[in-house]
Amino acid sequence: MKTTNVMVAVLLLAASFTACKKDQPEMAKPTIDGLEIGIGNNKLAHPGNDLHIEAMITAAGNIKDVVLEIHPESGTGWEVNNTYTEGFAGLKNAEFHKHIDVPTDAPVGDYHGHLKVTDESGQITETEFELKVVADPTLPKASNFEIGLNAAGNDLHVEATIDAPNKIAEVVLEVHGTSWEQEVSYKDVAMVGQITYNLHKHVNVAAAPKGHYHLHLKIIDQSGKENEFEEHFDKL
């Protein structure tokens, strides 16, 4: 009799536990939205330049890591296999905004990419994209690109040599961090229409809180072509 009672109690406990598990809602899988590959989502990369990749990531179960992979559609060529945790791990919402160096010797052709997010419960969401590596010697370029924040932390010095075979139309500087961003556009008379120009600007970042920041230098030429370059700085 006692044995029967114990077995009934065990069965009732197991049934109760199973019912409780069923009552608990399943954690939603991570999502990847607004994926943008290349400038203006043109899905183009150029040897010797940066490849812009951007997306919004949401993970109810908190992000564990983000993995970016790029490989040739066939044969051998340029490959990327990066895992990112800093600035992502433990967050429920994050902006993935990276500029990936494309080697000068990267073979032109068709490539395939994967952006994968894993949350802390092990759930994975992956999205794929197509990419074409194209050589274009007429793209505007920036060399000797340097930035520096003054001791007071309110003035960001930006310097670069710009070369634009199709002549400069506009230069845009964008500063962004986790909770602050600012964009400044320049169409100086001395700059517009030039093939070569020594850029020297100062951006007011006094309102930016302490943290890690990205600076994007975007050059737009008079044929409508764009190219973008990135540097980083910390405001302490």
Rank of each mutant, 00 (worst) to 15 (best):
K2M: 04
K2A: 04
V6M: 05
V8W: 10
A9H: 00
A9K: 00
A9E: 00
A9S: 00
V10G: 01
L13N: 07
L13Y: 13
A15F: 12
F17V: 11
A19C: 02
E26W: 07
P30R: 06
D33Q: 15
G34I: 15
E36K: 07
E36W: 11
E36S: 08
G40K: 07
N41K: 08
N41D: 14
H46G: 06
E54D: 10
A55D: 13
A55E: 15
M56F: 15
M56N: 15
T58P: 04
A59G: 05
A60Y: 14
G61I: 13
G61V: 12
K64N: 11
D65I: 15
V67Y: 14
L68Y: 14
S74N: 13
G75N: 09
G75L: 07
T76A: 07
G77A: 06
G77E: 12
E79D: 13
V80D: 03
N82T: 14
T83G: 04
Y84S: 01
T85V: 15
E86W: 15
A89W: 15
K92R: 13
K92M: 14
A94V: 03
F96A: 08
K98F: 13
K98G: 08
D101N: 15
P103M: 04
P103V: 05
D105T: 01
D105I: 01
G109C: 12
D110I: 09
Y111D: 02
G113E: 02
L115R: 02
K116M: 10
T118A: 07
G122C: 11
I124D: 00
E126K: 06
E126W: 09
E126A: 05
E128T: 13
E130T: 12
E130M: 08
K132M: 05
V133R: 08
A135S: 07
D136T: 02
K141A: 02
S143E: 05
I147R: 04
G148E: 14
L149N: 05
L149V: 08
N150K: 04
A151D: 15
D155G: 08
L156P: 08
H157L: 12
H157P: 03
A160E: 09
A160L: 07
T161W: 13
I162C: 01
I162D: 03
D163F: 15
N166R: 11
N166H: 11
N166D: 09
A169W: 08
E170C: 09
H176M: 14
G177D: 03
Q182G: 06
E183G: 10
S185V: 13
K187Y: 15
K187P: 09
D188G: 13
M191T: 02
V192F: 13
V192Q: 09
Q194I: 08
I195M: 10
I195S: 06
Y197T: 01
Y197L: 00
N198I: 10
L199H: 05
L199A: 03
L199Y: 07
K201P: 03
K201R: 04
H202Q: 09
A206V: 06
A207R: 05
G211K: 03
H212A: 03
Y213R: 01
Y213N: 01
H216S: 06
I220F: 05
Q222M: 03
S223L: 00
E226W: 03
N227K: 05
N227G: 01
E231N: 12
D234V: 05
K235S: 03
L236P: 07
